[in-house]
């Protein structure tokens, strides 16, 4: 399962919102194939009865009391934005239902 095609790289790049040039896609497909080949070694381990570890902390998630705390002033919130108008972020037209 380790072979990864150019098409798959393009599909993945689409999901990740990355645009790859011809050469880049070619190189990435090669690199990913090498890496996936390497990680293939894991398949040799029998893990059928092994619980996955998502996080090494043996904790239950702590909870926060439902209290309002001051956040950032709107002017500060948008201060770093590449494009803002008033206190709103500006992006190219969002068409309802279309994917960004």
């Amino acid at each position: 399962m380790s072979a990864i095609t150019r098409d798959e790289v393009e599909r993945i790049a689409g999901l990740a919102r990355l645009e790859l040039s011809e050469g880049e896609a070619e190189r990435m497909a090669g690199d990913l194939a090498t890496i996936l080949d390497y990680v293939e070694a894991l398949q040799a381990l029998d893990t059928s009865d092994v619980e996955p570890t998502a996080n090494p902390v043996p904790l239950e998630t702590p909870l926060r009391d439902d209290r309002v705390r001051p956040g950032l002033a709107a002017e500060v919130a948008v201060a770093g934005a590449p494009h803002a108008e008033g206190t709103a972020f500006v992006v190219p037209k969002v068409i309802e239902g279309e994917e960004g």
Partner: peptide
């Protein structure tokens, strides 16, 4: 009173981005 994962007020309307935090 506050949002799901932070202490910002749940508050509708108002100027954009007045109830936000990191």
């Amino acid at each position: 009173a506050s949002k799901m994962f932070c202490g910002c007020a749940v508050h509708y309307g108002g100027e954009p981005n007045h109830q936000v935090c990191p």
